[in-house]
């Protein structure tokens, strides 16, 4: 909305240190799973912890996993990233599959992308191949050594041909055709 607002900040599409171009570093630092051992809303969360959590921790040794069993509280996932962002997500009444997908989303994010308004949807370090436009790209090189002001560069060169000029050209053509006729007659 407003560019000056502290809480609605905007940014460009960037990857920290060109992550992925060379090596890939998982941006998720730690993930905290808060759940209730008995309440129904934490069922999906409990299923995830029982079945998929150990595999997740084995496959991603760079992510630290914390479990917080808290009674009578709704299940929550909190992810903290290398750039300091903290993403809080309430997973009350979510199924096991949904939680797996959301954890996958948090793992592959590089920060809290939902809070940043993207100003442009593309980013490139090399926007130009031929070189950006300069005032010298299409400038006539003869202007470099010309004595300004000169009529060569100052006069209008897109005017249509004047009547005098047309007549003169007709006369020249006539002269040439009579010359060729004379030559033919001489031969």
């Amino acid at each position: 909305m407003s560019a000056k607002n502290l809480f609605l900040n905007s940014g460009f599409v960037r990857a920290p240190l060109q992550n992925g171009v060379g090596r890939y570093v998982c941006q998720l630092q730690r993930i905290v799973l808060k759940f209730c051992k008995s309440h129904g809303g934490s069922r999906g969360m409990r299923d995830f912890i029982e079945q998929d959590l150990v595999d997740f921790a084995k496959h991603h040794p760079g992510v630290v996993v914390y479990l917080k069993p808290r009674r009578h509280r709704s299940p929550v996932i909190v992810g903290e990233y290398l750039n300091g962002d903290r993403v809080w997500m309430n997973v009350h009444n979510k199924t096991h599959e949904e939680i797996t997908k959301w954890i996958e989303v948090l793992r592959t994010q590089q920060g809290d992308i939902a809070s940043v308004r993207l100003r442009k949807y593309q980013y490139t370090d090399h926007p130009s191949i031929q070189g950006p436009w300069t005032p010298f790209t299409f400038k006539d090189p003869e202007l470099n050594t010309a004595e300004l002001p000169s009529s060569k560069f100052g006069a209008n060169n897109r005017l249509p041909m004047s009547a005098t000029e047309q007549l003169r050209l007709m006369f020249e053509k006539q002269k040439i055709s009579t010359k060729t006729e004379d030559l033919k007659i001489a031969e």
């Binding site: 400038k139 202007l143 470099n144 300004l148 002001p149 000169s150 009529s151 560069f153 100052g154 006069a155 209008n156 060169n157 005017l159 007549l167 003169r168 006369f171």
Partner: peptide, 28 residues
């Protein structure tokens, strides 16, 4: 500092007495 010239839009015709005499005589 001047390095370029803007072209005029109207034609500036040359005056008859600015053209050399020989050219005037030879003109068809």
């Amino acid at each position: 500092n001047v390095s370029s010239q803007i072209r005029q839009s109207r034609l500036v015709p040359t005056r008859l007495d600015h053209i050399p005499e020989e050219e005037v005589k030879q003109y068809p």
